[in-house]
Amino acid sequence: MAAAFADLPLALFSTLAPMGAGAFLILAILFSTTKLEDDGVAAIDKCTVIPVALVIVGFIAAFFHLASPFHAFAAFTGLGTSPLSNEVLMGCVFVASMLVYWIWAMSGKMTLGVRKGLIWVVAVLGLAFAWFTGMAYMIDTIPSWNTLAGPVQIVGFALVGGAAAAVLVLALAKRADVLKNATLKTAVLAVLAVGIVLGVGGLIAQAATTSAMGNAVFAGADLVSGAMMVIVCGIICLVGTGVCDVFAVRGAGAGTLVGVSFGAAVLAIVGILLLRLAFYAMQLSVGLSIMGA
């Protein structure tokens, strides 16, 4: 398990960036279903800096994972053949759309019609980016990763982490009333539930298949048992995220909402990061590839 920390920058990237991306789904549902005053919209736009920052910090972590970050633009060369190039392109398209949306929204010159359309584009591209991030790990010489459980996990983490980030945005924007809106409340709870099921379910499916594998260096069961405590702690954190956010949308008063939603977001980051590290710890090659070596 210790060797998985060699991939910490990538684990941070695949934790923070999809989490920020997922937040735009909740914001898209919010703007499509709820009528807001102008000052409320402006406050939400300001606090949207949180998912934007999560995405940017995630990309910075990935950038510094590279041994030659200043050659990074060459990463587009393998489009269509390298899953990493596909991920980088999808990530850049998503980031560009996110920045266009956010900067335009912050200018105060975005009409409601444009906002509704553009934020759905950002939300869909965000989820597509999360899927492509998971696809990048599907390498046929690493059978423990070469399964759809990988992309399913990351989309799940984007949903649960994104819901937590979006609830924090609304709490900091002092829009507790919006969270009590029946449609948005149902959407947040549904996205949280689906996210936890996909994220945790995907990881458990991966662990189950890995435990039946082995190569000349490692037994898959040993890798899984080595990561087990981290997996359990990650799942507890994600369940904690769900509990905090259920409390946030159902019962928290204005005074406690910020604290509860902040706690949910922190638990989401810690939980997803632990489960990403567990994913890296379950890298099992068909041959002699040794993690971190």
């Binding site: 041994a67 050659h71 990074a72 060459a74 390298s82 990493l84 690493i142 590839s289």
Partner: peptide, 17 residues
């Protein structure tokens, strides 16, 4: 070497390490 970004993807994929 002039094109390589040092992402380590090749290291992960090569089954001969």
């Amino acid at each position: 070497a002039d094109r390589c970004i040092g992402c380590g993807y090749c290291h992960m994929a090569c089954p001969y390490n």
